[in-house]
């Protein structure tokens, strides 16, 4: 008897964005916001809740057979995993934003971001010299306080940028929630995984 399939789900913003869809597909979910369990088991599946940046790590090592994570994370820290399904929800944009009152200066640019690999790759491809400042959050503060000329960050509506006097200079890519799959599980338990992928795909169409 095989153990139940294990799914790794992200906590936070992205979980809220995919909850409806996952519920329709039959994925076990927490019972209300007071439910702090990190592992759930139901419906022939075990679900674990991890920080979004850690989801690809659980999946790559085969601790989870599949998971849900935003494209922003997959671009920042590529993993040797499959990404067969775009759930189309949790839509955001990865943007370069600068102070509204001041155009970007001549390079070298000082960029603040939570996404140093994405940022270095984007500007590196154009030969723009950079000084990268890696921050953990509230990135909009950096240009306002003159720590950086611009930021690279994920935005949903852009309201936070505007409220802090920033404007979007450029969009790098659109990010949505993706289903990622462990390569070994894809080989060893194809029927079960394909069945879940079909249920998830059907749930995206109902939404």
């Amino acid at each position: 008897m095989d153990p139940p399939l294990v799914a790794a789900l992200p906590t936070g913003r992205l979980l809220r964005a995919v909850t409806g869809l996952l519920g329709r597909a039959g994925v076990p979910l927490p019972e209300g916001s007071a439910d702090r369990r990190l592992r759930l088991r139901d419906n022939g599946m075990e679900v674990l809740f991890a920080k979004d940046r850690d989801v690809p790590i659980y999946v790559e090592h085969g601790v989870a057979d599949f998971g849900v994570v935003g494209r922003d994370i997959l671009e920042e820290q590529p993993a040797h995993i499959y990404e067969p399904l775009d759930l189309g929800v949790g839509r955001c944009r990865m943007v370069v934003a600068r102070r509204a009152a001041r155009p970007l200066p001549e390079p070298p640019l000082r960029l603040a971001t939570k996404y140093p690999s994405v940022t270095a790759r984007h500007f590196g491809a154009r030969g723009v010299p950079l000084e990268l400042i890696r921050l953990s959050g509230a990135i909009e503060l950096a240009p306002a306080m003159d720590l950086a000329d611009a930021v690279v960050d994920l935005v949903e509506t852009g309201a936070t940028l505007r409220d802090n006097g920033l404007v979007e200079e450029e969009t790098l890519f659109e990010s949505t929630a993706r289903v990622v799959v462990n390569r070994a599980s894809f080989r060893l338990r194809p029927a079960e995984l394909q069945a879940w992928l079909r249920r998830l795909e059907a749930a995206t169409e109902e939404g």
Binding site: E60, H61, G62, V63, H80, N182, R183, A184, R187, L188
Partner: peptide, 10 residues
């Protein structure tokens, strides 16, 4: 590629 249960990766 060769895979086996329990290995997680090829």
């Amino acid at each position: 590629e060769a895979h086996a249960p329990g290995a997680g990766q090829e």
